[in-house]
């Protein structure tokens, strides 16, 4: 095999020049990679280091990747002096319920749109596509209005229920269900299984990759969700992590101080998604590309 992949022999002089040029290119390539690697990762290094610094150290040596001395004061104050544990609990609750809801409801709807023949299906799918174009940020006031009207403002229900389904997830599931062969379901149907039974015990187990993608997208989306919590609740007891963090920065602590605490809290809020990202990177990439395609 090695012989096949080797380059065909060329005149000696050209080879040497080509080799030199390849070397320079490779060096340049690595230089660019490392430069941008630093640009993209060093802020996180600073964040981690600074959250273990003392306050004077963080202010005096903002670029240093080494805390000197190592201090846990920031983290102690996160747990003793802020409502961080409460925010964490709320975020976990919202994220778990929203993820379960999205995976279940989006799969149901995606399956129906892909496989079941019902009147109005095409129109409904067009509506789902149209809904995907609605920019989230213009929904801030509308969402507040409806939550207010339904008496769901300032409640867990208001925080969770509006996020339980999303058009993009339906779209992803529909695309996936259309790509798996019909024959298996046909067999199950002929054996007398009902529609839901076929969906639940035959089709869904085959949809594992799409389900993982959707689970990850939903987890990441709802864990990071900020504007919705801004208009759904105002009781600090119902704050999620992003909301609490934003409050910490812009409100109660003011600007310019307590950076180890703030960076530490932001770090803790980033860790779950970071861990998920490292384990399931493949699915994040797929999600990003499908998110693009749905445009």
């Amino acid at each position: 095999m090695a012989v096949l992949t080797d380059r065909p022999p060329a005149p000696a002089v050209t080879t040497r020049r080509a080799d030199q040029r390849a070397l320079v290119n490779r060096f340049l390539g690595y230089a660019i990679l490392i430069f941008f690697g630093l640009v993209f990762l060093y802020p996180f290094v600073i964040q981690i280091a600074s959250s273990f610094k003392t306050e004077p150290d963080a202010a005096a040596h903002p670029l240093s990747p080494v805390p000197d001395p190592v201090s846990l004061a920031g983290f102690e104050r996160i747990f003793a002096g802020t409502a961080f544990p409460l925010w964490l609990g709320n975020s976990l609750l919202v994220t778990v319920l929203v993820t379960l809801g999205r995976v279940f409801f989006d799969s149901l709807a995606g399956y129906a749109l892909a496989r079941l023949r019902f009147r109005g299906r095409a129109g409904l799918f067009a509506a789902i596509i149209a809904v995907m174009a609605v920019p989230g940020v213009v929904l801030l006031i509308p969402k507040f209005l409806v939550l207010n009207q339904l008496g769901m403002y300032d409640s867990y229900a208001g925080l969770i229920v509006p996020l339980l389904a999303d058009a993009a997830g339906v779209f992803i599931m529909k695309q996936f269900f259309e790509s798996i062969p019909v024959s298996v379901e046909e067999a199950a149907r002929i054996d007398g299984a009902g529609t839901f039974r076929t969906f639940w015990s035959v089709v869904l187990p085959m949809a594992k990759p799409a389900l993982i993608t959707l689970t990850i997208l939903s987890f990441q989306g709802s864990w990071n969700e900020f504007p919705h919590s801004l208009v759904a609740v105002q009781d600090p007891g119902l704050f999620t992590l992003p909301r609490g963090l934003a409050d910490l920065v812009s409100g109660s602590l003011g600007k310019g101080t307590q950076y180890p605490l703030k960076l530490g809290a932001a770090l803790l809020a980033t860790i779950p998604v970071a861990v998920l990202f490292v384990i399931f990177q493949r699915y994040f990439v797929r999600g990003a590309n499908e998110g693009a395609d749905k445009g």
Binding site: F36, G37, F40, L41, P43, F44, I46, Q47, S50, A58, A59, A60, P62, L63, Q220, W223, N224, F226, L241, P242, R243, L245, A246, V249, K255, G256, Y259, K262, L263, A265, A266, L267, A269, T270, V273, A274, F277, F284, V285, A288
Partner: peptide
């Protein structure tokens, strides 16, 4: 490495950049 910032929380990252762009920041 290049993709990682895209998946993190916008609020958490904004906190980091507040520090980076602080008067005596990085």
């Amino acid at each position: 490495a290049f993709y990682f910032p895209s998946v993190t929380s916008s609020v958490a990252i904004s906190v980091v950049f507040l520090f980076l762009f602080a008067n005596s920041g990085a």
